[in-house]
Design a protein around this nucleic acid. Structure first.
Lengths: 377, 377
DNA sequence: CTGAAAGCGCTTACAG
DNA sequence: CTGAAAGCGCTTACAG
């Protein structure tokens, strides 16, 4: 440890020419700035934080010297005295294999990062397994004072996270599909909009009998999707059967086999994510079911996988990156004490590709029959 | 701000039953522990950190009370006094679109996280654009004392990061393809092993004329790949032509068109990543070139994209997750003062799929000719 | 083995 | 507008 007194006046400069004094660059503190300018640490602090209490003249001198010396405030000291970490926490509790497969998370992170870059803040990330360790991490990070708040994904039944964070008094934003009035921030993207998008598309193509392979029912958003899709379809006279999947490839494949084995096959398949949609496509083709001629396939979430499949898979671009941005933005406002806790995400956009087409295209093959009937009562 | 004196003896307990006292849980500090146990803060600190200076009896009482009260040390205070953040930094400077497409990063992060979970540490992540902002972030985080060290990816020509971090005196590990002796930690995975894997496979299948579409030459590992692939191929009497790609789909497609337009076509294509390999597959099929009959396609990096393509794309599983784990492990050892700075990654594994097969399978189509010649002198 | 004290680098009332 | 001082919650020599 060198003593502060040994500062020799030529630290490494932030962006300027390389420093002349060799060796390891030494950390510059506000005490150094104060000493050099013959003012108090308090004045330096006021100047740096753009607060009243210093003359313009002084402020300018401080900022200029700080720039020159490449001063950056020690984040631990700031956090300790001001209880502000400029860091948000994200804890994702999913099977690692799935995390890396689904572009959703990476896209969301990119969106969040875009915002963080703008406000010079950081992301503390933790990918835990699926077994409740996430609660421990939330608790620990909160108690440790590591973050200013959290962004939560994948709300599920009996989700303990919101109650926990409320008890701990830590701000959070839930990327959510509904808006319970529990006082925490919510970035809401209602499945209703996507349901409409998908049903409009399929109805227009003449589909009146579709199957829906959802993700796990334990997720709140999946429950809503299933419910809303069923309701809206019914209203339009479209029959929907539902199967619960796991987001995994194998599951999408199996469900598709199940559906295709039925006497009365649907003409279209809606899959809860991109991986299961690709699986459906493969299985259908392997079984000799032409896509889209005999079976249309659409996915709830767009991704490169949908785009690169052949035929390309029609999917809803959920604007994931923008959602990430907004979630971060919202969290910072909440952490700063703002109210207005519920925001809505921008509308999704249907990317129409070759996997969806008119129902009842008669093609050579085990010809589909018995269609166009109204849904059973 | 409530005063410490107002502690009422029934904070929220870490894992136990819900606390009885209502309201917001209040933060527990070592002062609280010390007061309750009638010992000094120092003793509490020693006990918690498993250091000499306290009796076993006292240590047990401290740990027990800490557990009971759900105590977690304030990270800022620890960082400030002990200069240890339990946090590593990663700054990725790539086009966001590419970041989310390539499973590489997400896989690596998952691996790193596995390790961090074990040692209860965290990851500070920043995804910047491609324009040198990464250096600013490294400098700022270093000066701010936010991290104990960095893991660096994608070493490129004139990379300023290692010199910068050395100057700043911050530990780092470079996930690297070579081992210059610059005194920083390196997790090395030599392309030589992958080159051998790929050439063994292709040679065995009778390919004697291949094309290699690499990633950008600015990356050190791509330069090495190109060089080593050329050398080893030559030694085996295999002809290699090289084209420089960008890792993007469009580029993979264009390069493939270029190669297929040649009079003397290669019988196999090696692509620098999964996206370009998928692109190559599409283009070949669109142009009526049968894969693998007329053209074999192999990818340097495996991913779900390769696995899910049809035909599946033969690729090298680079054990990315394990690499991430090792990088984190190495960084922590370096930060702790260990030497032995260079580690090697585990060997990659070739995943043979349907996109590669024997050269010169005569099939209907624009029959390939003029093959099996030795490489031009 | 234990305690009192200084110090890490900031912020923030509180006097001048 | 400016400065001296206390405090954030830890760690760490240094005496007892």
């Amino acid at each position: 440890m060198t003593t502060p007194g040994s500062l020799d006046g030529d630290e490494t400069v932030a962006d300027g020419p390389a420093s002349s004094g060799g060796r390891r660059s030494q950390r510059v503190t506000i005490s150094d700035l104060a000493r050099r300018l013959h003012i108090s640490k308090a004045s330096v602090s006021y100047a740096l934080n753009d607060r009243p209490g210093v003359s313009e003249e002084t402020r300018r001198r401080v900022l200029s010297l700080a720039e020159e010396l490449g001063f950056h405030p020690n984040s631990a000291a700031v956090a300790l005295s001001a209880s502000r970490t400029r860091t948000i926490g994200i804890v994702i509790a999913r099977d690692p294999a799935l995390i890396s497969t689904e572009a959703f998370y990476m896209h969301t992170l990119v969106g969040i990062e875009q915002y963080l870059n703008e406000v010079d803040s950081s992301l503390l990330l933790r990918l835990t397994g699926e077994h409740g360790e996430d609660l421990d991490v939330l608790r620990r990070w909160s108690r440790q004072g590591r973050v200013d708040g959290f962004i939560l994904f994948d709300e599920h039944n009996d989700d303990q996270r919101v109650p926990l964070l409320k008890e701990l008094g830590v701000p959070c934003v839930v990327v959510s599909s509904n808006a319970p009035d529990d006082g925490v921030g919510r970035l809401i993207s209602s499945p209703e909009q996507t349901v409409t998008l998908l049903l409009d598309h399929l109805a227009e193509l003449g589909h009146r009998d579709i199957a829906h392979v959802s993700g796990p029912f334990t997720f709140v958003h999946e429950q809503l999707r299933v419910k809303l899709l069923a309701e809206h379809a019914k209203r339009r006279g479209i029959r929907v059967t539902h199967l619960e999947g796991s987001y995994r490839y194998e599951d999408g494949a199996e469900m598709t086999r199940t559906v295709l084995a039925r006497k009365k096959r649907p003409t279209a398949l809606v899959l809860g994510n991109d991986l299961m949609a690709v699986a459906a496509l493969r299985v259908a083709m392997d079984l000799g079911t032409a896509v889209p001629d005999e079976l249309s396939i659409v996915a709830w979430d767009d991704s490169p996988l949908c785009e690169l499949a052949r035929p390309g898979i029609t999917a809803v671009d959920q604007q994931t990156m923008e959602r990430g941005r907004m979630a971060a933005d919202l969290l910072f406002r909440i952490a700063a004490g703002e109210s207005g806790l519920h925001w809505e995400t921008p509308a999704g956009v249907l990317r129409v590709r070759d996997s969806s087409a008119r129902a009842n295209r008669t093609t050579p093959g085990r010809g589909p029959t018995r269609r166009l009937r109204p849904a059973s009562p």
